[in-house]
């Protein structure tokens, strides 16, 4: 913890060479030929995005800023989303911990805001708390403020740094794949088989605390992830985007990509924090990654099912 304060660890900006076809990595078939207009345009966009993603500095988290912005978050969370967060006492009072959440609500993810508010008021802004976010989110000009809340680009390097600094770290393994799932899959936890969070917890020997949220996927009508479209346009290679979501959302109506965000409908957000899972206590000295993954997923799905059964109507809760 002390080292984190004295050395101001510089985190990685989340890009990997393979993400943008960097040096030594072939871009694939398209790079062998003269790129077309669309390809050149996308490469230009990718270059701009790469330039905009800050080399994250964990020290950019600003407790004073968070404290002063809590009233605005509280108003939004309490009046618009009628947020309810249960079980914060399940998070260990101190030390590094990996908070694993299901991700909902498209690029405007209200459950993240509600949770940041609840965590910050419960433990105080003095407790170090970081969140991992997609590069694209951090590169949006009006979302740069997220860095003051402790948000850094999602990468194993940044996760390492955050946990080594003694922080609580919130990750969404499902990422863009889960956050843009169709609305009719709103009550399904879908990590798309991403096991990285288990290895991270094992490597740092930190407990996993599942955080299950409901309501985010009711803030717009999410129609499709648009995976085919994303692949066709090469977004997966250029922007690490596996999806190009299609939704009906305010104020745009038909919203393709959700790049500019949207105005979320005032769906009730309920979040339940589950008891901490101490991997080596529960699964032995060498916990099998697959078994832990299945256990976390199953526990979270059961909780989400229970939360869903409490809801009488979509949006109203």
């Amino acid at each position: 913890m002390a080292a984190a304060h004295t050395t101001r660890p510089m985190a990685h900006n989340g890009h990997r060479r393979d993400a943008f076809g960097g040096e030594g990595e072939p871009l694939g078939a398209a790079s062998q030929q003269e790129p077309g207009f669309a390809e050149r345009l996308l490469q230009a966009v990718a270059g701009r995005v790469r330039g905009r993603v800050p080399v994250a500095d964990l020290d950019e988290r600003d407790p004073d800023y968070i404290r002063e912005s809590l009233p605005r978050l509280w108003l939004l969370a309490s009046l618009w989303f009628r947020g309810e967060v249960r079980g914060l006492g399940n998070i260990p009072d101190e030390g590094p911990v990996l908070l694993v959440g299901n991700h909902s609500g498209g690029n405007v993810s209200p459950d993240t805001g509600v949770f940041i508010l609840a965590f910050s008021t419960y433990f105080g802004v003095e407790r170090r708390f970081h969140q991992l976010a997609h590069n694209l989110v951090l590169s949006m000009p009006f979302l740069g403020v997220l860095r003051k809340y402790g948000t850094v680009a999602a990468s194993p390097e940044n996760a390492d740094l955050a946990l080594r600094s003694g922080a609580a770290l919130l990750v969404y393994p499902g990422g863009d794949y889960e956050v843009h799932r169709p609305s009719w899959e709103r009550n399904r936890v879908n990590f798309a088989g991403r096991h990285g969070f288990v290895r991270l917890a094992l490597e740092h020997d930190v407990p996993i605390v599942p955080v299950v949220a409901i309501g985010g996927q009711e803030t717009a009508l999410f129609v499709s992830r648009g995976e085919g479209l994303a692949k066709l346009l090469g977004l997966d290679r250029l922007l690490r985007l596996k999806v190009l979501p299609i939704s009906l959302a305010a104020p745009w109506g038909l919203n393709v990509g959700d790049m500019l965000g949207h105005i979320p409908l005032p769906a009730k957000i309920t979040i339940e924090v589950l008891p901490a899972i101490h991997l080596r206590e529960q699964f032995g000295p060498q916990p099998p990654v697959d078994e832990v993954y299945d256990h976390v997923l199953e526990t979270m799905q059961e909780t989400l099912d229970a939360l869903a059964s409490e809801r009488r109507l979509p949006i109203l809760g």
Binding site: S78, G83, V85, L88, L117, A118, T121, Y122, G124
Partner: peptide
């Protein structure tokens, strides 16, 4: 801590 709206506030 006291629950007020969507947060438990206090210190």
């Amino acid at each position: 801590l006291m629950r007020v709206g969507s947060a438990e506030v206090g210190g």
